[in-house]
Every structure is written in C-alpha cells, then in structure tokens.
Amino acid sequence: MTFEFAKDGGGRFHGIHPVLEAILRAAAADPWERCPEGSARLLPPPGDHGELIEDWEDHVRPELREGFSMARSVVEEDLGAMTQEKKGEWSLTIPSDHTDAWLTTLNAVRLALASEHDLTEADMAADEEKADFSTPKGMALLQVNLFGFMQECLIRSMED
C-alpha cells in the first residue's frame, strides 16, 4: 500500500491489499457503536468546574459529536468510491477538501481502539513483526498503526 500525493493536496492510496481494504472500510464505522467503552475518550470534559461541565454537556458535546458524524459521512463516501485495480488490489482517492474529515475520523477510531484495548505507548512502539494479529488486541494494534500511517501521509500532503 503506497501513497501518491496529488498536486492540489490530498492524494491516492493504491496497491491496497484486500485484507487491508476490509480493515480500511471499518474506519467509517461509528466509534460509539463499535467501541462503546473506548468512545468515552472522544468527548472528554473540559475541566473540573461543575458549571463548565454542565454547559459543555448541553451545548458543546452535541455540536462536537455532530461534527464527527459529518466527517465520518465524508469518509464513507470516499470508501464507497474505492476502485479495484489489477491483481485484486484497491485504490482510494482522498480529495484535498476531504483531508480534514479523514484525519479526524482516523484519529477517532485510533483513540477508541486504543482505549478499548488498553494499548500503551510501548505496545504501539513495539516491533510489528512480533505482534499477534490473531488476538483482538493484536488486530486493534494493526488497525491503529495502519490508520496512523494514513494520517502521516495526509499530514505530509497538506505540508507540501
């Protein structure tokens, strides 16, 4: 799986193996449904002042959640437009104006997965060859790393 920068920002992931394609499509799953335990991390309180928290719950949280939902719709749209290349591999194009939605959605899924599976900094820095992808934690690590790679590519596409 490689990334090709587009001249106007954004870019295209191509050579996506069918296994990674299936994992990638899961990025659009609602983290609140997919990882109910981990999703608490996505909308943390703004501090410990009671009045502040109350106001936040009533007004800000719904707005933030709506924003995440809209970003997820954009990701879903791009995933739906994925094309199959020769050799059964897939290609995914991310237009420059969809980059923010992708970054947010990938981050939300990574945070929810890490929280749900108690992934530590050491887990994420460990040699991937030693990871056991047959376990739920190993699979979560694979997803977190794959989505992290995609985030790095998209951030670089914005800088160039």
């Binding site: 970054l103 981050n107 990574r110 890490a114 900094e121 992290g148 951030i155 670089r156």
Partner: peptide, 8 residues
C-alpha cells in the same frame, strides 16, 4: 495522549 501522532 500516546495515541495522537506528534505530527498531528
């Protein structure tokens, strides 16, 4: 937060 990338 160890999950957030430094570049992000």
């Amino acid at each position: 937060d160890p999950v957030n990338l430094m570049s992000y």
